[in-house]
Amino acid sequence: MDNTVTLAHGAGGKQTSQLIDSVFKAHFANPDFTADDAAVLQVDSGRLAFTTDGFIVSPYEFPGGNIGKLSICGTVNDLSCMGAKPLYLACSFVIEEGFPLDKLEEIAAAMEKTAKEAGVRIVAGDTKVAGKGQVDHIFITTTGIGRLMDCAHTSGKYAKPGDAVIVTGDIGRHGCAILLARNEFGIDADVTSDCAPLWGTVKKMFDTTDQIHVVRDATRGGVGTVLYEIADQSHVGIQLDAQKIPVAGEVSGVCGMLGLEPLYLACEGRLVVFVPKEQAQAVVDTLHQCPYSKNAAVIGEVTADMPGKVVMKTEIGLQTLLPQPGGELLPRIC
């Protein structure tokens, strides 16, 4: 019984501090990590970005990562998309009674490693233990603060006709990896999640051009959902070229078998970027130099007509309206 999380670990007494010391402090140690009620931080003047995100994923371990890595990437990427350098994170854990301690250890280690890579410090945390069956293994919420670069003025509202639409890598890996991990279809496909922290990538893009209109990370609803959101927010049309959308062979194979559209599978390390057509090549060249965007590509362009609609040109010359996101077909993947 020693090697699992118990209700006593969450009671606030000696066992709680033991858990925090042995698992979390050991991994998150940094000068700003607080032992008090709140972390006290010194911030430069300028604009701050501030966000929070909860993570529930089943299974909590998957090819290419675990919920710990995911919880850091999610918040780091949300900040990065605003053009904000991620500075500090707070993490809140809800752990199911009976959760293996060695797995918790692995999750914390993944968080440490990912935070380090993203250059962000975990400065505050909280741990609760819930009774058996009250949560599905483990939930993590991360909250983050970042400092906006002066040159950053991106928003889903700023897409303009004539912009190129760029995706920073092959799409749908995360959703596909989770589906396979969860359902044991017996499909022989080696799909790893694309889960990755993208601050470095975003920084390099902003170094390349200051005319970045939109950066969004395509998470739960996939690239398709992001495109519809932007078409709607900016009152523009988006025209995609189906043949240019990067999809890994394994992913398109799995999608074919399951009857799913890769554009609506979740990603956790892919950005959708809108820049003026003239800057597109330079941005793509930069992306190709970064570790998580080797197959970045221009997948379409913004049009003035058909505002709010996303149209896809297919291989045989059809111009299909991409189905609206939502509906009951897809299971909820986080």
């Binding site: 589906l179 359902n183 279809f185 017996g186 499909i187 022989d188 078998m257 399951l258 009857g259 799913l260």
Partner: peptide, 18 residues
Amino acid sequence: AQQAQVVMRMADQNLNSV
């Protein structure tokens, strides 16, 4: 055999099935 298994699993898990 693999295609059959996938479809049967999808039906069991109610994935993309109506």
